[in-house]
Design a protein around this nucleic acid. Structure first.
Length: 436
DNA sequence: AAAAAAC
């Protein structure tokens, strides 16, 4: 893999782009390229493969979208192109990110005459299908729903000219890799298409995995030793378990933060924290994979519009989402994965803005802290917790109706496979057990 | 280790 080192600062007008693409760039309000755009566009516009790493909020999405539109406008569809053929495929790891990319694509591609669609699970099955059946050039989606429609021959990938994997390192994670390989195997071979990979955290391990699906890609890394942006003020507290909630609420009250994201490590914790914050008069909603899709989209839209002050989230919201004016990001639970720390705090201080990232390291997850600090290349400054910071007189969350949870997948499978002892329907005695 | 991702 070649690694690009030149660092010219480009202007969009100097890239020789088609008028239709420039018009979209103008609509989006862009004139000067960001570093990642300056370095990847000259490569990508030749049709070459590129893997791009740059800090959160520095314009990676526009980099691949501009390249993609220019390619589609200036290169003819591949021979045999049919009405069901997709010319460009963009895959993202979460539904909300797919929606956001689609939104950006509609702006940047508005004048190209190309047809866009986004497909993702949990909503609008027949509607999305009908959109695809009408004929689409640029298809954005999450793996599951894409494969679902693909298997039903709603579209084909035989003539796809451009592939983009956004948050590429995530897409090569264990949970996604099988689906990604499924899609990649159905595209033209690497030599006959353009492949682009982007993320703020591209490890060489991931690049190695990706390499077999790419054609002599150029690697572009912007300040690879500086994983986090300068505009984020990072701070670490070391609360005891029972201090976490009083500390969080104390800080929320004193911050008068208008737009705050609070990350937790589990769906259950998202739910519990939502109940606790609401019981204490915060306008908060929890976003996780357990939340119905329509609500997920509504919470995010409300948060975006400023109608929701506090968004509690699992890592479903840690990557790619661009919400202007997020003032504070809390890691109520320290993430287990160092890259996730970078992505989470990257929800604030985007596009040159400032923001605060406040993390709690307590016994449960503090073991991951050395990894995180090594990964970002510096210690995270810590501050002592003084009694006045802890909120008092808090209301306990209403327990509410016991919510029925589907059994965890792993347990189900192993139970089935081993023909396990537990009777299928009713547990032997007593009330339903709530784990932990 | 959890989370995400199809019906």
């Amino acid at each position: 893999m070649n690694e690009s080192t030149a660092a010219p600062v480009m202007n969009f007008a100097s890239l020789g782009l088609a008028a239709e693409v420039l018009a979209g760039i103008r609509d989006a309000g862009f004139t000067q390229c960001t570093p990642i755009q300056s370095r990847t566009l000259p490569i990508a516009l030749t049709g070459a493969d590129v893997a791009g790493q740059a800090q959160t909020g520095t314009g990676k999405t526009a980099a691949f979208l501009v390249a993609l539109y220019q390619t589609l406008l200036t290169r003819a569809p591949l021979p045999g192109h049919a009405s069901t053929s997709i010319r460009a495929l963009i895959v993202a790891p979460t539904r909300e990110l797919a929606v956001q990319i689609h939104h950006d694509a509609e702006t940047l591609g508005r004048h190209t005459g190309l047809r866009h669609a986004v497909v993702y699970g949990g909503i609008d099955y027949d509607k999305q299908r009908r959109t695809l059946e009408a004929g689409i050039d640029v298809l954005i989606g999450t793996p599951g729903r894409l494969i679902d429609y693909y298997k039903q021959h709603v579209f084909d990938l035989k003539h796809t000219q451009t592939l983009v994997l956004d948050e590429a390192d995530r897409m090569f994670d264990l949970g996604f890799i099988a689906d990604i390989r499924y899609l990649l195997r159905r595209l033209p071979p690497p030599q006959r298409r353009q492949s682009m990979l982007f993320s703020a955290t591209l490890s060489y391990r991931v690049l190695e995995l990706a390499y077999e699906h790419m054609n002599n890609p150029e690697l572009v890394r912007i300040e690879p030793d500086k994983k986090t942006v300068a505009g984020v003020r990072q701070i670490m507290y070391y609360p005891a378990m029972e201090e976490k909630i009083p500390l969080l609420i104390g800080l929320l009250r004193q911050n008068e933060a208008r737009r705050t994201m609070i990350f937790v490590n589990t769906k259950r914790m998202a739910e519990r924290l939502e109940a606790t914050l609401r019981a204490n008069d915060f306008h908060a909603q929890a976003l996780s994979g357990d939340v119905p899709q329509a609500k997920r989209l509504r919470f995010l839209r409300d948060f975006h519009n400023g109608d929701l002050a506090v968004l509690i989230a699992t890592d479903v919201a840690s990557r790619g989402l661009h919400i202007p004016e997020v003032s504070h990001v809390f890691n109520f639970d320290l993430p287990q994965d160092a890259a996730d720390y970078v992505h989470r705090i990257g929800r604030t201080a985007r596009a040159g803005a400032q923001g605060d990232a406040i993390s709690f390291a307590c016994e449960e997850y503090a073991v991951g802290l050395p990894d995180i600090e090594q990964y970002i290349g510096h210690k995270i400054p810590s501050a002592p917790i003084t009694p006045d910071m802890l909120a008092t007189g808090l209301t306990a969350a209403q327990p509410g109706p016991e919510r029925r949870r589907p059994p965890r997948r792993g347990q189900t499978h192993s139970a089935q496979r081993s023909g396990a002892a537990r009777p299928p329907s009713r547990r032997a005695g007593g009330k339903p057990r709530r784990s932990r």
